[in-house]
Structures are given as C-alpha cells and as structure tokens.
Design a protein around this nucleic acid. Structure first.
Lengths: 157, 157
DNA sequence: ATCGTTGCAAAATCTTTGCAACAGG
DNA sequence: CCTGTTGCAAAGATTTTGCAACGAT
C-alpha cells in the first residue's frame, strides 16, 4: 500500500511503453479508466463519449478528438477491442486475450459475456464449408435482463 | 408470360397494400429492386445508397431521404430486415421469414448466408442461463472468400 | 531542435427531420 | 378533397482530419 502512489502511475505508463506508445497524459488517463472499469467488473464497455464525459467530470482537460485518436491507437496496439452493439456508437473494452461473445439488454444496455466452445467450433466448420478463411466473428444476443424483467413485472402490478 | 406486364406492376402494389402502405411510385420502385435482387440470388443485401444509385441509374427521380424513409417503413412493416455488418452503413434484405446468419468477405464485401440449428439452440440455453429473455441475435462471421483468396494467390505468383 | 501529440474547428459520413409542394384513394 | 408522401435543404450524430501550438527527449 505504501507504494500505491507510485504504482498507480507506473502501471499504465509501463503498459503503454510495452506496446510502443509514448506515455502521455491523455493516454494514461484513458488507460486508467479502462483499468478501473475492468476491475470494477461491471461497466467494461465504454464509448468515446463515455470516456470523454468521465474525464471532464474528473476536471481533466481533453479534446474529444484526442479520445477518438487514442482509442484507435489502443485498438491498433491490441490493448482494447472495438464492438458495435446495436447500430450507433462504437464501444471498447480491455482486450485481455480471452475471447468472448456478448448478450446485451435491450432495455438498460447492460452487457454480459459468455463463451461457448461448441458454437466457436461450428463457426469454423461453416466457414470451411462455404470456402472462407475465417478471420473473426461477432455474435451478440439481445434480450431483456433479469433486473429489467423484474422492474417490468412490478410496474404492471 | 403474357401476363407479365400486368404482373410486374401488380405484385409490389399488392404486397404494399397487404402491409398497410400506400402504393406510391417510390415505394413500388424500391420494392421491385429488392425483389429483383432476391431473384437474381446474389446481391441480396443493399444499402440506402445502393438503392438510390440504382434508381438514379434507371433515370428514376427520387430523393435519398425518401429512400431512407421507405426503408424504415419497410422494416417496420416486416418486408425487409436491417443488418449492420462492419460498422458503417446499414444494409437491408428481403425478409422471407427464414432466419439465417451471415458470413461476410472482408475483401470484396460478398455475403453468404447459413443456418445452424445447434448454434441457435445453444444461444437460447445461454440466454436462459444468464437470466435473459432472448429477443434476437446477430451472428456474423468475417473472412476471405474463395474468389478473393484465389485472386490473392495469383497476384503473388 | 525535432518529431510526435494535442486541441480546436472544420470536414466527412450516414441518417433524420422540418416544411412546403404534391399525389393517391 | 384530405391526409399521407415526397423532395429538398438543413440539422443531427458520430467520427475523422488539417493545422498550428505544444511538449518530451
């Protein structure tokens, strides 16, 4: 704990250098936000706007354009992954190397993750059968989560 | 064949009325484009811009905004389905009621379709396990199609 | 001093909307 | 006729880019 002040600064700095990016203030701030999100476990998926707002809320001056640029750099560097749920805006999450798919609540936007080896296996087979060299895939399930269903039931009662 | 002239006009008109839409010129033209695409078998997935260009090419006057509006109406009416491959533009295809997923060539944009009962079944199980009431899903595989792989091989030779 | 990085404003892209003119039933 | 529909231009939303100022080595 006594090292925490140093530590909190060093970790993102090191991670950035590891992937060949200069450890600038905006990049460190943004990486920290992702790490916090990752640890807190819940809000892993963030949009450019989410990040921008959070930085502004912390009284950190930054341009929205910079957020976009940094996110692109992070994605290229393999630190984060970009997703397009729904239609509109892109969201990003830390790339911990462990692939997973998503189920998104159409009411509250909550995102849960899952993996299914059998589905993955079948995807590969399908690609082969259709003559494609598989590069990647995107599977998103959409539905209503437990909480929202409960709320809806209560609203009706 | 002798009825074809009448037939080509009546079919879209009837289909529009069936779903409660006035049979206006733009709507009929657009529906015809989808039907042609459906029959020709290949280019089933069209963007607003695709349709607009095709109409302009046929010397049919129409506003791009109208294309967007009509597409939205068709989707609401259940005539077509909207997809977001990649990130950028939406594409639409005729909704023939038979659900299928897609594999998209990342080089040429070609789209093939497939269904896998086992994948569908597992998706339902996953939703239940995570407490969601499943409303829908989107599965897209991305890769390089046979033709593009061949072209790439030839280019290297 | 140099080269990458930032911030801002402007541009780009895709889509939606306000409004007056128009057209189907 | 009457209401819905169209076309156009303008507005929106998201993301990218040009460029001058800035900053770390």
């Amino acid at each position: 704990m006594s090292l925490n002040n140093e530590h909190e600064k060093l970790e993102p700095e090191q991670e950035l250098k590891n992937v060949g990016l200069k450890a600038t203030a905006p990049r460190m701030r943004i990486l920290e936000i992702f790490q916090k999100a990752q640890e807190s476990g819940n809000v892993r998926h963030l949009s450019a706007e989410d990040i921008y707002k959070q930085l502004v809320a912390e009284n950190i001056e930054i341009g929205l354009a910079t957020v976009y640029r940094v996110l692109t750099q992070f994605e290229t560097a393999g630190l984060i992954i970009r997703h397009y749920f729904g239609n509109d805006r892109a969201t990003y999450e830390v790339d911990d190397g462990a692939h997973h798919d998503h189920i998104v609540c159409t009411r509250c936007g909550r995102v849960e993750e899952f993996v299914d080896k059998e589905i993955e296996r079948r995807q590969k087979q399908i690609a082969v059968r259709l003559g494609f060299e598989l590069e990647g895939h995107s599977l998103s399930l959409y539905g209503v989560c437990e909480d929202c269903r409960k709320k809806e039931r209560e609203r009706k009662a």
